[in-house]
Computed example of a mutant assay.
Amino acid sequence: MKNIDDLTIGEAKQLAAMFGSQKSSGGLKGMIGEKVIIRTYSAGVWFGTLTQKAGNEVIIKDARRMWRWCAKKSISLSAVALYGVQQEKSKIAPALPSVWLEAIEIIPCSADAIESIQGCPDVEAE
């Protein structure tokens, strides 16, 4: 076995590339930059772009609180992430630049869901 101190620059680059591609290609860090729905313990449900994640803490930008949501198909929040919302039955708040949340669920959104949620009008006070 070769001593790590004896690696050539080329071997070190190969090793770095091997670990770098594994790190960025999967897991929760692979969701950074994606549009997601976040379910929290006490702050409700949010939609936005995942920018940071550490443990159960996340930061999302262009964050819209989904005060009331109704899936286009089926009944679950997972269905919202797949199919989007019935806009006339949902109440989605205006976007904040960013928000820090404690997440219990992070669900990546389909293109249909993103279009549906982003196109939902800002809810007005009743």
Rank of each mutant, 00 (worst) to 15 (best):
A125S: 09
V58F: 07
A54I: 09
E105P: 00
P121D: 04
R64M: 00
K91T: 01
E105I: 02
P94G: 14
A81V: 04
N3Q: 07
P108L: 08
A81P: 00
Q86L: 11
A17Q: 12
M66E: 05
K91Y: 00
I117F: 10
A79L: 04
K35Q: 14
W67A: 11
A125R: 12
K72P: 00
K35Y: 12
A81Y: 03
N3W: 03
A71R: 11
C109W: 11
D6A: 15
S78T: 14
A17T: 13
S90D: 01
M18D: 06
G26V: 02
A111H: 10
D112G: 08
K29L: 08
V123P: 00
G20N: 08
K13Q: 05
E57W: 13
K13A: 06
Y83F: 14
I107L: 13
Q118T: 14
S25I: 01
K23I: 13
V45F: 04
I9A: 10
K89A: 13
K35M: 12
D62K: 11
G48T: 10
A125I: 14
I92A: 05
P108H: 11
Q118A: 07
G55A: 08
I106F: 05
S110A: 11
Q22F: 07
G44S: 06
I106K: 04
I37Y: 08
L82Y: 05
P94W: 07
S90M: 03
K2Q: 10
E34Q: 15
Q86T: 12
I117Y: 06
I106G: 03
G10N: 07
P121W: 10
S42E: 11
E34I: 01
G55D: 09
W46F: 11
M18F: 06
D6P: 00
I32A: 01
I59L: 05
K91M: 01
N3T: 03
W69G: 03
G10L: 11
E88G: 01
A93H: 09
A71T: 04
E105G: 06
V80W: 05
L7C: 04
A12S: 10
A16R: 13
L96F: 12
L101M: 04
